[in-house]
Design a binder for these strands. Structure first.
Lengths: 228, 228
DNA sequence: TAAGTGTAGACTGTCGACAACGACCCAATA
DNA sequence: TATTGGGTCGTTGTCGACAGTCTACACTTA
C-alpha cells in the first residue's frame, strides 16, 4: 500500500498540553518567574489535573519550568549566567557534532548543509526575518542530526528549546541577514572540506558571538514585551 | 537553636518511587527490555497509579525507560551503539569541564581532586573494589561539579546515571586497582598544573579506553547475572 | 512590643473508578 | 483462502474527590 495519507495521530491529552504550554513559554507568552497553578491551568484548559500534572513534569524535565514539592511550579528564571551556560554548552554540542560529521565523512551531510544555506539566502533576499530564523534553527539542528548520535540529539533538544526561549525574550538587534547567511556558508564549506579545526573555530565564533551579544544585553533588556 | 537534629524530609511518594525504580534499573535488577506494567507495579508497591505514572515519566525523561503512548513502558535497551555514544558524550562533558576548571583557575579544585585521589588510594590498598567504584564516581562527579556550570551538571546527571547502568550490566574485568588510582592522580595533576591539552588527552584516554573495553565486549556479555 | 501558638485558606499530592485505546481471536463473508 | 467485522481482554489515559502540606495572619501570652 502506498502511504500517501498522513497517519492521523491520536496524542494523549498530556502531550497536547505540553505543546501548548511549551509554546507559550518559548514565545515568551508565559514569562520567567510566572507561577503555574495546577487548579487554574486545568480549569483554563478544560481538563483535569492529572494530565496537566504530567505535562508540567515533562516541562520540568526539559528545564523550562521549576517545580518544588508542595510549592508548585513556575517558569524558570533566565539569568545572565544561564544564558552564558546555555551558549557555551551549545557550542560544545555543535563542535562535537561537526567533528563527528567530518570523521564519518559523508558527502550527503555537506550537501544537506549547503542546501539549507541556499534556503537561507532566499529568505534573506526576500527579507523574511521570521523565515530566516526558522531556517537558522534547522541549520543547527541539521548539524546535530547529521552527527548520527542519538544521545546527543536527545541532549540537544533541551538546549535548543531554551535557546529559542532566550531568543524570544531578548530584544536583540539583528545583524544583517546577509551576513548571517554568509556565516553559515563558511561553516558548511569548512565541514565539507573536512577541516576540523576550521569548522570548530567558525562554529565557536558564530555561536559564541551571538551568545555574548545576547548575554551582554541580558540584564538591561525590556521585560514588558507582551503587556497583558 | 543548635540544630543537632537532622531535618526529616517529607518526600512525595513519587520521588521515593523514582528512587526505588531507578535503583532497580541501575543495579540491573530490572533488566533492559523488561516491561513495566503500571497496574502491577502500583499494586506491588502498594500505591495508586497516579504517583507511579509520574515516577515513570521522570525515569523516561532521564532516559532510563522508554514509554510509548497507549503501549506502556519498558526499561530501555542498551545496544553497543548506545554504550559508545554514552562514553563519547561523557568524554566531551568531562573535557569541557576540565577546560573550565583550568580557565577559572581555582586552587581549591586541584586540592579537592587530589583529596579524592587519596581516598581512592586507600580503597585500593584496602582492596575494597566496591568502595573504589564509588570514589571513582565521585572523582568524575567532582570534575563536573568544579566546573561551576549548572546546565552541565544537569546534563551530566543523565549520562552519569546510564553509565552506572552500563557498569552494572557489563561483566567487566577490572584493571588493577592501583593502576586506576594512578590514572586519576595524573589527571588531577594535569588539571592542577593548568595544562589544558594534557588534561584533555588524559581524560580522553582514560574514559575512552574504559568505554572501548566495555563496548567491545558488549554483545557477548552474559545477560543472566541475576537469575530470578 | 515581641515571641510564640493556633488557626484558615490555597494549593499540591494521592486515591479509586471509569473511559479509551490497541492487540488479538474468531466467526462471517465473499 | 483472504478479508472484513465485531467482540473481548489487558492495558494506559483521564476524571473528580479527598487527604496532606505549606504560608500567612490573627491571636495569645509575657
Amino acid at each position: 500500500m502506498s502511504n500517501r495519507l498522513n497517519t492521523l495521530q491520536n496524542k494523549p491529552l498530556r502531550e497536547r498540553v505540553v505543546e501548548t504550554l511549551r509554546d507559550a513559554i518559548l514565545t515568551g507568552e508565559l514569562k520567567p518567574g510566572e507561577a503555574l497553578v495546577e487548579t487554574d491551568l486545568a480549569a483554563q484548559l478544560g481538563i483535569s489535573r492529572a494530565p496537566l500534572r504530567e505535562a508540567l513534569q515533562q516541562l520540568s524535565a526539559e528545564g523550562l519550568i521549576e517545580t518544588i514539592a508542595y510549592h508548585g511550579s513556575r517558569v524558570k528564571e533566565l539569568t545572565r549566567k544561564d544564558v552564558e551556560e546555555l551558549y557555551s554548552l551549545r557550542t560544545m554540542y555543535e563542535t562535537f557534532a561537526a567533528r563527528r560529521i567530518i570523521q564519518n565523512g559523508s558527502a550527503d551531510a555537506a550537501k544537506r548543509l549547503h542546501d539549507i544555506y541556499e534556503q537561507m539566502l532566499d529568505a534573506s533576499n526576500a527579507g523574511d526575518i521570521r523565515l530566516l530564523n526558522m531556517i537558522d534553527r534547522s541549520f543547527h539542528d541539521a548539524i546535530i542530526e547529521l552527527s548520527d548520535h542519538s544521545l546527543l540529539r536527545f541532549s540537544w533538544s533541551h538546549v535548543s528549546l531554551r535557546v529559542r526561549q532566550v531568543m524570544a525574550l531578548s530584544n536583540r538587534r539583528m545583524t544583517s541577514m546577509n551576513i548571517i547567511a554568509q556565516n553559515h556558508l563558511r561553516i558548511a564549506e569548512a565541514i565539507a572540506s573536512g577541516d576540523v579545526d576550521l569548522s570548530v573555530r567558525l562554529l565557536e565564533e558564530h555561536i559564541a558571538s551571538a551568545g555574548d551579544l545576547i548575554a551582554s544585553q541580558w540584564d538591561k533588556r525590556s521585560t514588558d514585551q507582551t503587556p497583558s
